[in-house]
Design a protein around this nucleic acid. Structure first.
Length: 185
DNA sequence: CACAGGATATACT
DNA sequence: GTATATCCTGTGA
């Protein structure tokens, strides 16, 4: 089943765990989501916490769209906007298990080792060729394609990564035992 | 393991 | 205006 726009128009804390095991493909290249993090409006670590800026504009837009931002001036990071327009809640996609377009990924990443192709938010954006041009695009249309996670997906929860504010909130979700996690849960 | 790389935003002077 | 921090990764110690 394809994920519809309505899927994202719910609490980010409901959407995030349901995205683990889902299929994410961009222009035919992608795989299974194995790690995400939730960011809500009351979260000091969220880009939306201090209000709208030119960078985080799409976070404040309608749900079911992409929010792509540049991290540390070097990498791109892909978020999926949730809840409703103006809420500024989103799910950060941190790692996927590559299943489609492995060749393209290796070319883009200049790397052979499968485990490192997409295990990390910046890495997966490079492998799927996600850039600022995808910022604000709908997730139910090309170049994106999102497929529902199987009910059997075993999701585990743990602390988030790389942040100092509210780092203790257990809002990182991962596929149990996956070797493609950016960090073990 | 430490650290450079360098856009964006905020908190200072 | 300058300084500091950040949802990170590759490289070299």
């Amino acid at each position: 089943m394809r994920l519809a726009q309505e899927f994202f128009a719910r609490s980010v804390h409901d959407v995030a765990p349901e995205l683990v095991g889902a299929t994410l493909v961009v222009n035919g290249v992608g795989g299974r989501i194995v790690e995400v993090e939730a960011y809500d409006r009351e979260d000091p670590a969220s880009h939306g916490f201090r209000g709208q800026t030119p960078r985080n504009r799409s976070m404040f837009g309608p749900p079911g769209r992409a929010y792509v931002y540049r991290s540390y001036g070097v990498h791109w990071c892909l978020n999926l906007v949730c809840e409703e327009e103006g809420t500024a809640a989103a799910v950060l996609v941190r790692a996927i298990e590559p299943t489609r377009g492995l060749g393209a990924m290796r070319d883009r990443r200049g790397l052979k080792e499968e485990r490192l192709l997409c295990s990390g938010p910046g890495r997966l954006c490079q492998a799927l060729a996600v850039t600022g041009e995808h910022d604000g695009l709908r997730l139910d249309r090309r170049p994106f394609a999102l497929g529902e996670a199987p009910a059997s997906a075993h999701v585990v929860r743990g602390p988030r990564v790389g942040i100092s504010q509210a780092a203790e909130l257990p809002w990182r979700y991962g596929l149990a035992g996956s070797r493609f996690l950016s960090r073990v849960l």
